[in-house]
Design a protein around this nucleic acid. Structure first.
Lengths: 201, 201
DNA sequence: AGCTTGTTGTACTGATCGGTACAGTGTGGC
DNA sequence: GCCACACTGTACCGATCAGTACAACAAGCT
């Protein structure tokens, strides 16, 4: 796991972050293979020696970018950390919609964008998988909380429901992305919530 | 639209098809940017002059690959052309699952894989969009048929329901892909069908 | 001061990229 | 037979790719 070198000084950390930030932004638009190391360095203002000081190779940079994406995604939907009632789930979906309604905002999931491209890369695919699982785990936790407080039937499987919600988010975002229309995401989230609600006692 | 040259002779058509087939297979695994023209030609056995005889550039080859994907997808789910009853929709979802249950089979939507990568390419994104719309149009047609025969409530919006079904398929496939587990797709399709059924009179 | 270690700039390599030039071959219509 | 044209093989181009070499700089510690 510790494949990429850590930056020990504040100056080094700033440089490393600048590289990852630039890579994240470029790869979000042009994909992994479409983003060259040279472009990343030009955008970040760093030199090649920095890049290969902090990362063994491009693949490790992509790994850092995946982590970066997950942090950014979760940071944009803080309600996911405190899912204790059905209303909280509503709030969560509203936060997701808000992100993508922001003018010039995403309308695409950075992880989803990568999923197709690195889906068969033996090194990177597991990282994307783990990122999704972490994201999903907070949903699962929230559903378990509901279950404990009797607001979700005992027979429901929180892990499975969380996965189902995830598929709605991803599918909705994929269609919304290529269609430049958030309606697909709105409907997908509403259907996901309805499905969850069907397991209310 | 007629940007790529047509093959006029059987021999030429064979060559052109071989190029598109090879490109489709490689881009399915390695993505667009990850698939070089040279690799495509090596795999197809064609030479560079053939490639640039039939396609103006790599982008036009990708356009042909997108068309190729749509044909293959629809060919694998023939039930989508004859959706006249609720049972037909069931059959349709079963066909989708069968494709991805085949050992060594897809477990990923080739269009979905591309969507993330070319989502912001001004030339290619509209083509992916159109491919999805065509795919979706058959669902919409089927839903309209149900509506006409009174098996779907008047107030339902076939286009919107078709889009919702599409998001389920895509989300399910995305998760199933990176998870190497078809469960996500199974659940997503079941939820999609349940959602459609909720509009039965 | 001097040493160590983290950090940085620049120049370079061989491989590969998309695309072109151009001379050739196969083949159907006359 | 022969001509036109679709088709093909190969060599080549400048640009860009990921990655390396190596010398220099900055800063904390003694």
């Amino acid at each position: 796991m510790e494949a990429q070198a850590a930056a020990t000084t504040p100056r080094g950390k700033r440089t490393r972050d600048a590289i990852v930030d630039a890579a994240a932004e470029l790869m979000y638009v042009d994909g992994v293979a479409g983003t060259s190391v040279d472009k990343v360095l030009a955008k970040s203002g760093a030199g090649k020696s920095q890049m290969y000081h902090y990362f063994k190779n491009k693949e490790q940079l992509v790994a850092a970018v995946i982590e970066h994406y997950l942090e950014r995604i979760l940071g944009n939907q803080p309600a996911i950390f405190e899912l204790g009632s059905w209303a909280d789930f509503e709030t969560w979906t509203e936060q997701i919609l808000d992100i993508h309604r922001r003018p010039g905002g995403p309308i695409a999931c950075p992880l989803g964008n990568l999923a197709g491209e690195v889906g068969d890369n033996p090194k990177l695919a597991p990282l994307v998988d783990q990122a999704y699982r972490k994201w999903e785990s907070y949903l699962e936790l929230g559903l378990k909380t509901l279950q404990d407080s009797g607001e979700l039937v005992r027979s429901a499987d929180p892990a499975r429901l969380a996965q189902a919600a995830m598929t709605s988010v991803q599918g909705g975002l994929l269609l919304a992305h290529i269609r430049h229309d958030i309606t697909a995401l709105e409907d997908a989230l509403r259907i996901a919530l309805t499905h969850l609600h069907s397991f209310r006692p």
